[in-house]
Each structure stands twice: as structure tokens, then as C-alpha cells.
């Protein structure tokens, strides 16, 4: 990420993701379904984004932040789940994730991280590439003229200038899989969530910067 992009990200007056954060704040206070709003239970969700994906104590399922929000909506608010990558879900996630800005990512070894690691190291697709071959072995080199990043998921959901909009980590992962000419997993697939869990473990201790800006 260049200096200009970082400056754009760090100043709320120039970070275009703030449009989503502002909408997310409205949604957070909107009463729905059972007549409750997110803000009726949660005064703050500081730190939530820094410890997801996490296993849901009740169902035992591994949930990322988007799925956690949707689970809360369907189970506690009697409200319909938002579609993955919908404007509403991205906005709410961006608003919640922004509250973890500057906090260190919390993660520890667990079976989900291990499953994600296996997928990260698995060669896939027609190019027969694994995530690790680019993001562990060749970071800093160029791919089609742009530097290959180390693949730390510290800023999702983030505003990508190429997308001209906000996107989730799973959108990014699906992009990468398409680039490897591998079969993509559908949004919300357990494989992608495990991969997210591994990426957060890899980035443990790094500071959250959601909603970030990337080229």
C-alpha cells in the first residue's frame, strides 16, 4: 500500500468507507423484527472484529463477523438475515469493525485454524498454486505490475479502489481463487471461514485498521 492510500485510509474525512460506516450506524440503531435494535443490547462492540471468526458457543459453528451479525439478527431479533455482500451487511460490519480499530488481533491455535492452514497450503486450480506460494514465498515481488502483499486481513471490510466500493474478506478470497483458476467457494462457505480464521491467526498481534483502503 502506498503512502497516499494510507493517508486516505487514516483520515476519516477522505476514507470513502465512511459512507458505509455512517449507514451501519443507522442500521445499528434501527428497531427490527422483535422491536429491538442492535444498540439495545450492545452499547459497544469494541474488540468484536479482532476476535472473529470465532466458534459460536451454542451451535458450535465457526462464525465470521458477518455471520455473527446475521445469527444475532435471526436468533435474537426475529429479523431476516442480510444477504452476503449486501450493502446492509457490509455497512453493519464496517460500523462494528471500526470500533476495533487499533486493537490487536486475538487468535490462538484451534482446529479451525489448522483446517484453514491446510487450505492455505493446498495447491489448487489450473495454475496449481497455493495461497502460500504467493503470500508466504513471494510477497514483495510483482504480480501484473503490483506488489504481492503478505496477505494480512487486518482491514476488512475494506474499500478497494479497484472495486470502487466496499468488500468483505470473502470477496477478496474468491477473487484470488478465480485468479488461480480454481473453483471458488460460495459466500459463507465453511472453507472460506476457516481460511479467514487462519489468516487472522497469521495476523495475530497486528493492529486492526478496518475499514481500510487498498488499491
Amino acid at each position: 500500500m502506498g503512502r497516499e492510500t494510507r493517508a486516505m485510509q487514516d483520515d476519516d474525512a477522505t476514507n470513502p468507507a465512511m459512507f458505509w460506516v455512517l449507514e451501519g450506524e443507522t442500521l445499528f440503531r434501527k428497531k427490527e423484527g422483535s422491536g429491538k435494535a442492535c444498540s439495545d443490547c450492545h452499547s459497544t462492540l469494541q474488540g468484536a472484529a479482532a476476535r472473529h471468526p470465532a466458534r459460536d458457543a451454542k451451535s458450535g459453528r465457526l462464525l465470521n463477523l458477518e455471520q455473527r451479525i446475521n445469527a444475532c439478527r435471526t436468533e435474537r431479533m426475529d429479523a431476516p438475515a442480510y444477504g452476503y455482500e449486501s450493502r446492509e451487511l457490509l455497512s453493519l460490519t464496517a460500523y462494528v469493525a471500526k470500533q476495533s480499530r487499533g486493537l490487536e488481533i486475538q487468535s490462538h491455535e484451534n482446529p479451525a485454524v489448522e483446517a484453514g492452514r491446510r487450505l492455505y497450503q493446498l495447491r489448487q486450480g489450473q495454475l496449481n498454486l497455493s495461497c502460500a506460494q504467493c503470500h508466504d514465498e513471494r510477497w514483495g515481488k510483482k504480480l501484473a505490475g503490483t506488489p504481492i502483499p503478505q496477505g494480512h486481513s487486518t482491514g476488512y471490510p475494506l474499500y478497494r479502489l479497484e472495486w470502487q466500493g466496499l468488500g468483505s474478506l470473502q470477496r477478496r478470497l474468491r477473487n484470488c481463487l478465480t485468479g488461480m483458476r480454481a473453483e471458488t467457494f460460495p459466500f459463507g462457505a465453511p472453507e472460506l471461514v476457516e481460511l479467514e480464521a487462519y489468516l487472522m491467526w497469521r495476523a495475530r498481534g497486528m493492529k486492526m485498521e478496518s475499514p481500510a483502503v487498498r488499491p
Binding site: 476519516d12 474525512a13 465512511m18 459512507f19 455512517l22 449507514e23 443507522t26
Partner: peptide
């Protein structure tokens, strides 16, 4: 929702 953000 707000359509523009101005800072000065």
C-alpha cells in the same frame, strides 16, 4: 443516510 461528507 448522508450523501456527502465535508471536513474543514
Amino acid at each position: 443516510m448522508s450523501q456527502a461528507i465535508v471536513s474543514m
